[in-house]
Write a protein that binds this DNA or RNA. Sequence first.
DNA 1: CTGTATCCGGGCCGATACTG
DNA 2: CAGTATCGGCCCGGATACAG
Lengths: 134, 134
Amino acid sequence: MATLTAAQKRTQARIEYDAYLATCPSRQLLSTLGDKWVALVLSALAEGPARYSELRRHIAGVSQKMLTQTLRTLERDGLIDRDVEPTVPVTVRYSLTPTGHSLFAVVSALKSWAEQNMQTVLEARSAYDAAAGS
Amino acid sequence: MATLTAAQKRTQARIEYDAYLATCPSRQLLSTLGDKWVALVLSALAEGPARYSELRRHIAGVSQKMLTQTLRTLERDGLIDRDVEPTVPVTVRYSLTPTGHSLFAVVSALKSWAEQNMQTVLEARSAYDAAAGS
DNA sequence: CTGTATCCGGGCCGATACTG
DNA sequence: CAGTATCGGCCCGGATACAG
């Protein structure tokens, strides 16, 4: 039949909304920044260009896989440059593009907010947890 | 023995780094904002207080579970207020706190960056994919 | 040195059913 | 109306092994 059940309508609405979100610039940016290592890589490269192994050492907790994956994503989005020098063994330098620098500025603003307000947030959290425990 | 293998040292370094990240205000904020629905709930409430069912309708794609979970997290962090009116049936109004409003301002800045630069990013992405396909 | 390929466990999140 | 409880699929991301 042509009519849909309530459940089907809801599912359909969700699919459409997901599609809408997938094209939303803000959401795309947010999900990229939300990635665990993106902000750290941006910060590291904001201090200047660096080689793969330097990044790996500087961001101590990252796994090889995630570092490579993060770098590829950022490169694909035009946020960082990847320069390969044909030495033996090969040398690779990563650096921020202008777009990457401008994104880092935004992230810095976020960082400032966090540093100024996280204390308040943490206190609210403690108060909330204490009330729940009583 | 007292010495550690290279693998053990790396694991240890990762644990310490994770612990460090867990206390980093920026990272905490980023992982919160990265949550799929947080920004959407903030945006919705920035337009004014709303009831649970209103939010559910306004943010069409969200599931009951995730909406509740998101609201709880934001409430816990002191970003939104939850007011219960003892009517029958019960009425619940959510609204942004001052801290919540200030966070929304930051998110708005992020949104502006996304709207201004996502076109460039998308083009870079297309170019990258085209090069890979050749 | 700078990656790629594969396996696999844990957690996120949607669907569903139930409640005051 | 405004939730809570539970199950299950899927994907993220770490560990490991291999390669140019």
